[in-house]
């Protein structure tokens, strides 16, 4: 058994995949690991993230499997599941070995590695899909929009991408509470992520007042949600199924 110890980032994991191929490792005897837990009888390889190598991997994946399936792999890698690197590696290895056509990387669901990666990918894409709808911005004094989320998976990049396209003219901040991570988008500019482990930024942001119209507009929306409900069809159970309680923590209308 050979274990590639990778840094927990797209770059780290893609470099790991590169190294495994460079070394002609046998996929059945190879593991990509994100932790440092010692393993008996295994050959250890420390992987240093390498931008050029990971770019090559990305290009290969896109060319061989297509954009959509490449995105599927990225989603899987954003999962919080510890086995994500290994599942993606297994999936890529079987895809290359079987020389699957573009768009068919995840076909072979009877393979446990593929099934695992597919499930992780679906799970992440479902969560980011949900947040694209359930996330709520508040307007701060000065017009900056600010939202808090608490996702299980690392979906912030996907969510930022979505809102950057939607609100090119807005300055906005999205804060992942669990990861203490800010996504920052500048009006007519780009976006990036900022780690805030010391809590300096969040204290600053929380200290800013809401804009003068914020209370009124959020109240209008609460009224709207309340009024749109058809009493004769009340169905809180269905509501809870469609909008699980844990999303509601930061939602204006609840």
């Amino acid at each position: 058994m050979r274990i590639y110890r990778c840094e927990d980032s797209l770059e780290g994991i893609f470099t790991g995949i590169y190294r495994a191929y460079e070394d002609h490792s046998d996929p059945k005897e190879t593991e990509l690991s994100l932790d440092e837990d010692p393993r008996l009888f295994a050959e250890e390889v420390q992987v240093v993230p390498d931008r050029e190598k990971s770019k090559k991997v990305v290009r290969t994946l896109c060319r061989r499997f297509g954009e959509a399936d490449y995105m599927g792999l990225c989603h899987a890698l954003a999962s919080r599941d510890d086995g994500r690197a290994q599942a993606v590696y297994r999936t890529v290895a079987q895809g290359l070995a079987r020389n699957v056509a573009v768009g068919h990387l995840f076909d072979n669901l009877a393979d446990d590695g593929v099934l695992r990666a597919f499930k992780l990918s679906q799970n992440v894409s479902r969560e980011s899909q949900h947040l694209k709808g359930f996330l709520r911005f508040e307007e701060l004094k000065g017009g900056v929009l600010y939202a808090k989320i608490h996702p299980g998976n690392h979906v912030l990049p996907f969510v930022m991408e979505h809102f950057a396209d939607r609100f090119p003219q807005e300055n906005f901040l999205i804060y992942d509470v669990g990861r203490e991570l800010f996504g920052v988008h500048r009006r007519l500019g780009t976006w990036n992520l900022m780690q805030d482990s010391t809590g300096t930024l969040i204290r600053e942001v929380e200290g800013v007042n809401r804009s003068p119209s914020e209370a009124e507009i959020s109240e209008l929306f609460r009224r709207f949600c309340h009024t749109i409900t058809i009493e004769a069809r009340q169905n809180p159970k269905l509501q809870r199924n469609m909008l699980p309680l844990h999303f509601r923590e930061y939602m204006t209308e609840f």
């Binding site: 009340q234 169905n235 469609m242 909008l243």
Partner: peptide
């Protein structure tokens, strides 16, 4: 995209 669900469960 569904943004919320009303008390009757409709999107």
């Amino acid at each position: 995209i569904c943004h919320s669900f009303a008390g009757d469960g409709r999107c």
